[in-house]
Design a protein around this nucleic acid. Structure first.
Lengths: 200, 200
DNA sequence: CCTACCGATCGGTAGG
DNA sequence: CCTACCGATCGGTAGG
């Protein structure tokens, strides 16, 4: 009665493919992802990749979603037990810098790379990424506002502080990945804490 | 005695090609640049493109160098008559934000896009970009140190302020290009001035 | 999940 | 600068 390939097996295969796709796309970009190269890396045929996803476009989308989940798991999930406030924001900053310094993606922050790659390419991939980045920005702004509410004021607008923190993450990513500057993580952490008023 | 194609004509053709290559690469990335697409856009044959450059690799390198020059001409060159100090740094910030808000590249800041694309791709293109970015960072750090010397202290390390300004430029670029947020330029300008201690 | 194959496009060359 | 062409690789399909 058991089918030749169970649903669980199919899900595992799909997961293997999408994880390998994320690794490839991190180095070569989502447009650099090719079925031939990926199939070779996995010891599969191209048809074996197209099967579970239908097309390269859908595999790219699955890889983008998976990358968003990797970021969440590394930076956001560990905060789950802390209430909003200065300590939680400090932990967020520490986890973010650690994520950049010891990155789960071989080519550095996937979302930052995808943003630069896709911002000028209209289509579903760009729109999905826009939603992911906009949601991250909103939740970052909320974290900052919650911390400011417990800290002595006056404060800069939370949106402005969110832009500074997001920018510092991108600058640190460049310093780590392109410039290979070993002082980047410590400098980013100090600048992020300062921008968030956490050491005054 | 005059050759069928003068050196001046050859230089003009080369320049036309490299400018079109920068436009294409701004939208599609340096790896997305193809001889076929570029030839069609210019009404030329592929062989006509390869001639002046020798290979696609060398055309990519020429486009990267040209992009660095476009940035210099837009942001650095207008400062030539000002001595180092707070006013020159303020003008640099204004020019930088204006460059991002009304960008000479169709896909946003070329250097930022190239950084994300090339940081995981070893090779001459990556090394050239690394030199360009490192030189920009050094000159930015010098501008900041010169301004700090004329402003009441104490000051944060100039390297840290340079990281904040570079990061704010990347964040603003993302907000403009991907998020299409019309408040991005004003917020970036305020945050950059604040980071540089120019409005205290 | 495989092999075998499709038309299109890639970077590049030969010859003029 | 062109046309004509090269082998390689692209995403994807047919059939099993």
């Amino acid at each position: 009665m058991s089918p030749r390939h169970s649903a669980a097996e199919a899900a595992r295969t799909r997961d293997r493919i999408v994880r390998a796709a994320v690794q490839d796309a991190s180095r070569l970009g989502l447009e650099g992802l090719t079925l031939g190269t990926l199939a070779q890396r996995l010891g599969m045929s191209k048809a074996g990749l197209v099967g579970p996803f239908g097309s390269r476009d859908r595999l790219q989308m699955a890889a983008l979603d998976q990358a968003g989940e990797v970021f969440r798991a590394a930076v956001i999930a560990p905060l789950v037990d802390l209430p909003p406030g200065p300590e939680r924001l400090a932990r967020l900053i520490d986890g973010w810098v650690e994520y950049l310094a010891d990155c789960p993606f071989p080519g550095g922050c996937f979302i930052t790379a995808a943003s630069a790659e896709l911002d000028g390419r209209p289509g579903p991939l760009r729109e999905r990424l826009r939603e992911i980045v906009a949601a991250q920005r909103r939740s970052l702004t909320e974290e900052i506002a919650a911390a400011q509410a417990e800290l002595p004021g006056p404060h800069r607008p939370a949106e402005e502080v969110a832009t500074v923190l997001a920018g510092l993450a991108m600058a640190a990513n460049q310093e780590i990945q392109l410039l290979e500057d070993p002082s980047a993580p410590a400098r980013a952490r100090a600048a992020m804490r300062h921008a968030a008023d956490l050491n005054t």
